[in-house]
Amino acid sequence: MALTRSQVEHVSRLARLGLSEVEKEHLTEQLSRILEHVESMNRLNTTDVTPTYHAVALQNVLREDKPHQSLDRAKVLSQAPEAEAGCFKVPKITEG
């Protein structure tokens, strides 16, 4: 199915992924083509087919409730773009 530019803008907002005008244009066209190809799947009747989420089936993989050694805070914060008072710092929250 063909995507509209406004759909592309909606999705980019959902994905928190900024796009230039040119990128929006290209993506509207490319995504439409890719989805068109993907929709070949609709030729298959899958009504009673159970979806597969894990190709190699496992179950009940559990961990014992025992503490491990946590990371050194200084080491962790050394990778942070901005840190203050032992915390990660983020800009003003502009949305709920």
């Binding site: 961990r63 025992k66 503490p67 491990h68 946590s70 990371l71 805070r73 962790v76 914060l77 008072a85 032992g86 915390c87 990660f88």
Partner: peptide, 19 residues
């Protein structure tokens, strides 16, 4: 396996998974 405790110093009970 990080400790589940209330009121610790900020960011001391953290590891690759919970970060």
């Amino acid at each position: 396996g990080c400790k589940n405790e209330f009121g610790a110093e900020p960011n001391v009970n953290v590891c690759p998974v919970c970060l």
